[in-house]
Design a binder for these strands. Structure first.
Lengths: 236, 236
DNA sequence: GCAGTTACGCTACGGGTCGTAGCGAAAGAC
DNA sequence: GTCTTTCGCTACGACCCGTAGCGTAACTGC
């Protein structure tokens, strides 16, 4: 996260420091306005007025609407990064599903997430910002859950003999690789896309609630399917 | 789809008819502009100029940017509704995955789909429009694939004794019910959310391609998982 | 203290887009 | 030919954008 850096390089800076309270007020005002008027009708002038700051202050910290909204939403993802160990892979998946759904339950998250993703289609810098602030944190939960399941013996440990994905060779810049140092990161990424994608689609497109019942069904589907991917990995 | 109705009530109307060519030009211009400049920088004046029509003509047919974009994108979904029978559930899933990914391969679809979904958060009419023009057509493919799999015997037929979803009782207005007249529509809906959500998430968030390899993995996960949902349906 | 530096609130501005209104001309229905 | 509706065009007020300039406030280092 973090706005425009005012100081040039190193830490020590002179002069009047930026108000951290203003930062919080601006981000909160952004979320509030987002929930009320939506993305397209959101104006920076309105945000500044809600936050009780001048419009120019806003532009001194964020280049534009997109970046501000990303930071405003990213703050919601900062709070609860860890996930308690619920004792089984199935329960952990249910936990992460409900955790993610809880975030999407806030109207400002719903509106903002889709909007910034749409904007990121034409803005590489914005995509990186989203990845660092939001996506990587969610993906970390998947890696964590997989490692726990391996420790429990629910799924086999990483097999060094398991050949790397031929279509995703171990390229240093390969986004399939950096996460957990696993031998087969494509499984983590597949699960990540399935879990996060299904929850988002359920909430945003199908407009149906993600409740305990649905989470149980999705987790059941995945646990059984994951077992199949390991036991009969060359079946398909 | 369909813009603003000019005539008052019944079919027959007198006077100069609306130019169908203008409609096509406007929608094509919208897609073109969307792919180039993105959602937030898209202006209706620009679209009108690209289409070679007056800006007022545009406002006579669509209430605003959102509705225009929905119709422009929906036209892409109209073309290929059916899916060839590929002989197995796994192959059918792969087919629908690649089919959906093909649509998302167009930059205008990527940009527009997320943007209109974000806007739909605050606009019920827009949500209905999206549902009718886009979502229902995609969901139909899932129902079709499930019926084929049942005919092949890959998954058991609908069990009349299968109790309806307690959290989704057979309410006439229940969106879990209307699709295929199945005894357990929640399975169709779950698969729909998982498949469509995973593809969208893979393309939009992970920014990775949906290729044959990935489709095979997702299909494998689902086929195994679906079998588990049927054989051990009360396990979770 | 004092000077130096940076952030802040405020005002004002040109530029762009929105969505609408009014007009005369064009195109089809009767 | 007459009637009805659409079309292209121009013009308009309203709004928002993003920036510049100013005087003031807050904090640092001497």
């Amino acid at each position: 996260m973090c706005a425009i850096r005012s100081g040039l390089s190193s830490g020590k800076r002179t002069g009047r420091p930026r108000s951290a309270a203003a930062d919080r007020a601006i981000l909160a005002a952004t979320r509030s306005a987002l929930a009320e008027v939506g993305w397209s009708r959101l104006t920076l002038g309105d945000v500044a007025a809600r936050a009780g700051v001048a419009k120019t202050t806003l532009y001194r910290r964020w280049p534009g609407k997109n970046e501000l909204v990303v930071d405003a939403v990213a703050a919601l993802f900062e709070e609860q990064l860890e996930l308690p160990d619920r004792g089984s892979l199935e329960a952990d998946i249910r936990g992460v599903v409900l955790r993610f759904a809880e975030l999407l339950d806030r109207p400002e998250t719903r509106t903002a997430l889709m909007a910034v993703i749409a904007e990121a289609t034409h803005d590489d810098a914005l995509r990186l910002r989203i990845r660092a602030a939001i996506v990587d944190r969610q993906k970390h939960l998947v890696v964590l859950g997989r490692k726990r399941a391996q420790q429990r013996g629910e799924i086999p440990p990483d097999d060094p003999a398991d050949p790397a994905d031929p279509e995703n060779p171990s390229d240093p810049s390969d986004p399939d690789a950096p996460a957990g140092g696993a031998a087969a990161p494509w499984r983590d990424n597949l699960i990540f896309d399935v879990v996060a994608g299904a929850v988002v689609h359920r909430v945003m497109v199908s407009s149906e609630p993600v409740d305990e019942e649905w989470a149980r069904r999705l987790a059941g589907l995945l646990v059984v399917g994951l077992g199949g991917l390991h036991t009969a990995r060359n079946l398909f």
